[in-house]
């Protein structure tokens, strides 16, 4: 008998997820291409060709300034949907009542607690992660604006110190996003095929309890 399926990810979440996958890939790889023209970290290191995009400085800039629109607009759609929709507020946005769920999940991951606490779609730790990562993305966008338009949006640049320090902050926000993706991929890998396909099909098979 086929196991029953539950609706896990609405279409808009699946679309924005994969658009973000492409946009973030473009932004990080073309960003590393730009980095190579004049490394912001004062060490003798260039990112290898395999992780860069564009082939040369202006090629990287062209990809970066195309990807920025995709990344920013897609991000706004994701955030607005999650705030306005019942689905987002119930399953994804971290709220006051999720504080109580944090400790049991930490205990579960540390193997102190045997049984997975009951959850809808995301547990409290996941909600915390998916609610905080947009702020990191916002930091990446704002530091990006601050070095793309340091005169027109000079007040944004001053939020991060000056042009040079804003450039360093831009690199750090990117690094934080890459770390998030690494953790995300690890969790996806250990959660199995059934969980992974749900971000494509929208549905997830439920196991018999």
């Amino acid at each position: 008998m086929r196991t029953p399926k539950v609706r896990q990810h609405p279409l808009i979440i699946r679309i924005t997820h994969w658009v973000n996958f492409i946009a973030l890939g473009i932004m990080v790889m073309s960003g590393l291409q730009i980095y190579n023209a004049s490394p912001v970290i004062p060490i003798d290191f260039d990112f290898p060709k395999s992780v860069t995009l564009g082939g040369w400085l202006q090629g990287g800039r062209q990809w970066h300034f195309l990807g920025m629109w995709l990344f920013a607009i897609n991000g706004v759609v994701w955030v607005v949907y999650n705030i306005l929709s019942k689905h987002g507020r119930m399953t994804t946005i971290f709220s006051k009542k999720d504080f109580g769920g944090l400790l049991p999940m930490i205990q579960y991951y540390l193997r102190i607690r045997k049984k997975h606490p009951p959850v809808r779609k995301y547990n409290a730790l996941q909600k915390a992660a998916y609610t905080s990562v947009p702020f990191i993305a916002l930091g990446a966008v704002l530091t990006g604006v601050s070095i793309y338009w340091p005169v027109q949006f000079g007040w944004v640049t001053r939020l991060f110190g000056n042009y040079d320090t804003a450039r360093l902050w831009h690199f750090l926000f990117m690094s934080a996003l890459v770390l998030f993706v690494a953790g995300h991929l690890f969790m996806v890998a250990i959660s199995g095929w059934n969980n992974f396909t749900s971000i494509i099909t929208g549905y997830k098979r439920v196991e018999e309890v």
Partner: peptide, 11 residues
Amino acid sequence: MTPPDKSQNVP
């Protein structure tokens, strides 16, 4: 998130 279903985990 539910615990991984071992039968679905084709390595």
